[in-house]
């Protein structure tokens, strides 16, 4: 356990962030918080990729086994792309939230359900 925390603490952090993010997505009834949760969830994955690149023993493309350790450039590129995708998603999500708020006047999922049921 201690070993895991000292050598692979980024993975532990990844798992923790992942769970926190997912929990917010599921448990929070506030739509904006859901979007925030989604962001945390994705950030966890980015962290995972980045840290994977720096771990000794982690495989890197093209060059293998000749000395090392290497920091693989690929994960960084991947994460960069994934961040862009994530930002775009957040933008769309927030746009939708704004639209929902202007129509229903609430951001709370529970209230939203009641308002829609009334109509």
């Amino acid at each position: 356990m201690i070993d895991l925390l000292t050598t692979r603490y980024t993975y532990v952090l990844f798992a923790a962030l992942l769970v926190v993010g997912l929990y917010i997505v599921i448990a929070s009834s506030n739509l904006v918080k859901k979007v925030i949760g989604l962001n945390i969830f994705q950030t966890a994955i980015f962290l995972f990729f980045v840290s994977a690149a720096y771990i000794e023993g982690g495989a890197s493309p093209v060059i293998h086994g000749e000395g090392g350790p290497y920091a693989s450039p690929l994960p960084q590129v991947i994460v960069l792309t994934a961040i862009v995708v994530g930002v775009a998603l957040t933008a769309v999500a927030l746009a939708l939230v704004v639209r929902i708020y202007s129509e229903y006047g609430t951001l709370d999922e529970q209230t939203l359900r009641e308002v829609r049921a009334d109509e």
Binding site: F49, A52, A59, S60, L74, P75, I78
Partner: peptide, 10 residues
């Protein structure tokens, strides 16, 4: 990510 970690390929 897991696959990548294991194989180093995408």
């Amino acid at each position: 990510g897991y696959v990548f970690l294991e194989t180093g390929a995408l």
